[in-house]
Computed example of a mutant assay.
Amino acid sequence: MLTDVFLQEVQERGKYDTIHEADRAARVVLALLGAHLVGGERTELAARLPETYALLLLNPLPAAEPLSPERFVRATAAWIDGATNETAKWDIGAVLSAVADAAGPDLVRRILMQLPLGYDMLFGRPTSL
């Protein structure tokens, strides 16, 4: 996927005024997500993203423990200047829904199996139990 196409998707979904805002959200969310994914799923997802974002996904420091969706939101808010938990949810939704479309349903399902319950909502892919 081309960087411009990915960022336009994030910008449209997040209703950001500029590509810079979409890029900032994508960098933070993907770096945090990369710390929680391992193995083939992380590599496969990276292959479906533009190189800049793939590297962020592949090269984070591993998380000491999995973050619940609520803690993921708080961590995102902490990394974006002026963000609140509500704006961080918006940023996460814009980025992860674009990521989910790039990944496809099978890969998203396998990614969600690695993450704590509740991440399906962050990806914009609610699942029924």
Rank of each mutant, 00 (worst) to 15 (best):
H36K: 08
P60A: 07
A78C: 09
L7S: 04
L49T: 03
P116E: 09
L56R: 11
W79C: 10
L61W: 15
V95W: 02
A46Y: 10
L115S: 11
L58K: 06
L2I: 10
L33A: 04
A47G: 13
R74V: 00
L32T: 01
V10N: 05
L61G: 03
F123Q: 01
F123H: 00
M1I: 06
L107S: 06
A26I: 07
P60L: 08
R74T: 12
I111L: 12
L33C: 02
W90L: 10
A83S: 14
L129F: 14
P116G: 11
G34F: 01
V29G: 00
A83I: 11
D81R: 13
A94W: 07
A31Q: 15
P50G: 00
P105Y: 07
G39N: 08
A46K: 09
P116N: 07
D106T: 12
T18I: 09
S68G: 01
N85Q: 15
L122E: 00
P69A: 04
S68N: 08
L2Y: 15
A64K: 12
P66W: 05
D17G: 15
N85K: 09
E21C: 05
V10Y: 09
L117S: 10
V10G: 09
Y119C: 05
Q11L: 12
L58M: 15
A22V: 12
H20G: 05
E9M: 11
A35W: 02
A103W: 09
P60H: 05
W79K: 13
P69W: 02
G14M: 02
N85I: 03
H36I: 01
L107M: 06
R109C: 05
A77P: 05
A100I: 10
T18E: 14
A22G: 09
D4F: 14
R74Q: 13
A35V: 04
T87K: 03
A31I: 07
L56T: 01
L33F: 11
R27T: 10
Q114N: 00
M113Q: 15
D101M: 14
G93Q: 06
Y53G: 00
I19V: 12
L30I: 13
T87I: 10
R13P: 00
L107N: 02
S68P: 03
S128D: 08
P126Q: 00
L61C: 08
L37K: 01
N59F: 15
W79G: 07
A88N: 08
G124V: 00
L129K: 05
L7K: 02
K89D: 05
I111K: 01
Q8W: 09
A94I: 03
A103D: 04
A63T: 00
L45P: 00
D17L: 14
R42S: 06
L57F: 08
L7M: 09
P50S: 06
P69I: 03
A54I: 03
